[in-house]
Simulated scan of single mutants.
Amino acid sequence: MLYLQITANTGPAECCLAVAKALQLFNKEATKAGVTARIIEQVDGPHAGSLRSALLELTTDKNEDAVQHLAQAWEGSLLWICNSPYRLGHKRKNWFLGCKVFQPGSTMPESEIRYEATRASGPGGQHVNKTDSAIRATHIATGISVKVQTERSQHANKRLAAQLLSSKLEELHAAKERDSKAERRMQHHDTERGNARRIFVGMAFKEQKA
């Protein structure tokens, strides 16, 4: 199992739309690879149908290498080349987003986490609970928080939120070791412009092959 986050970082609305488009394509590739991708945390973008970020849990009941291979195919900086659908005539056409892979975190002492039950949000229908079963977990010392609403019970969401929070903290510590000047939030890593791992073109979000 791995976690993968697709994020617009601090980019404009166009980058948020790119996240939503990337998520749709990722789900297609995951299905083809036999990998189950569950959204366990998401932040909506400024326009309907856009996302600031989406955090996925990747699992499979087949070859575990499929998860690793799929994640590696997406990790890094992504570039969407398209005229802005929100600002007609805008000169900028290059919109960057990023993908980051997280390993499952280890168990963290309950005393270090503050839990809050909230109402699940998102599209209507059977996939969203109507009760306060969503859980927001905050690491007291750092203020880093996650919101999980995947499961139908508070207990299950609480367990998943604790593991996810631990994973983000471990990645934060690793990032600081790699670069002592890095003071970035785990949910929104800086995207490396000009060195895109994959490039997509147009509103159809078609991949540009090398």
Rank of each mutant, 00 (worst) to 15 (best):
3 Y>E: 11
5 Q>P: 01
7 T>N: 11
8 A>T: 01
10 T>C: 09
11 G>P: 03
15 C>L: 04
16 C>W: 01
17 L>T: 00
19 V>R: 00
20 A>R: 14
21 K>F: 11
23 L>P: 00
24 Q>L: 13
26 F>T: 02
26 F>C: 06
31 T>E: 09
31 T>D: 14
36 T>E: 13
36 T>Y: 08
38 R>Y: 09
39 I>P: 05
40 I>S: 03
40 I>G: 02
41 E>P: 04
43 V>K: 11
44 D>L: 03
46 P>V: 12
47 H>W: 02
48 A>F: 04
48 A>Q: 04
48 A>S: 05
49 G>S: 04
50 S>C: 07
54 A>Y: 06
56 L>N: 04
57 E>M: 09
60 T>H: 10
64 E>N: 12
66 A>T: 10
67 V>R: 03
68 Q>I: 11
68 Q>N: 12
74 W>F: 15
74 W>T: 03
76 G>T: 05
77 S>A: 15
79 L>Y: 04
79 L>F: 05
80 W>H: 14
83 N>T: 08
88 L>A: 14
88 L>S: 13
89 G>A: 04
89 G>K: 05
90 H>M: 12
92 R>H: 06
93 K>Y: 00
93 K>E: 10
95 W>T: 03
96 F>G: 01
96 F>Q: 01
97 L>E: 08
98 G>V: 09
101 V>I: 15
102 F>Q: 02
104 P>N: 06
104 P>F: 08
105 G>Q: 13
107 T>K: 06
108 M>H: 06
111 S>D: 11
112 E>R: 04
112 E>D: 15
114 R>A: 15
114 R>G: 01
116 E>H: 03
118 T>D: 14
118 T>H: 14
119 R>D: 06
121 S>I: 12
122 G>S: 04
124 G>H: 07
124 G>V: 00
126 Q>I: 13
127 H>F: 08
127 H>P: 00
128 V>N: 04
129 N>S: 15
130 K>A: 08
130 K>L: 13
131 T>M: 10
132 D>M: 08
134 A>C: 07
137 A>K: 09
137 A>G: 04
140 I>W: 01
141 A>M: 09
144 I>S: 06
144 I>W: 12
146 V>R: 02
146 V>Y: 00
151 E>A: 12
151 E>Y: 12
152 R>N: 15
153 S>T: 11
155 H>R: 11
155 H>S: 14
157 N>A: 08
158 K>T: 11
159 R>I: 10
160 L>K: 11
163 Q>G: 15
165 L>K: 03
165 L>Y: 08
166 S>G: 14
169 L>K: 01
172 L>Q: 13
172 L>C: 05
173 H>W: 00
174 A>K: 08
176 K>T: 00
177 E>V: 13
178 R>S: 06
178 R>N: 13
179 D>E: 09
179 D>M: 07
180 S>Q: 10
181 K>L: 08
182 A>I: 10
183 E>F: 12
185 R>K: 14
186 M>P: 02
187 Q>N: 05
189 H>L: 15
190 D>S: 05
191 T>C: 11
192 E>A: 13
193 R>Y: 12
194 G>D: 12
196 A>D: 03
197 R>T: 04
197 R>N: 10
198 R>W: 14
199 I>S: 00
199 I>E: 00
200 F>T: 00
200 F>E: 02
201 V>A: 00
201 V>E: 06
201 V>S: 02
202 G>W: 03
204 A>Y: 05
206 K>E: 14
208 Q>K: 10
208 Q>S: 07
209 K>S: 11
210 A>P: 13
210 A>C: 04
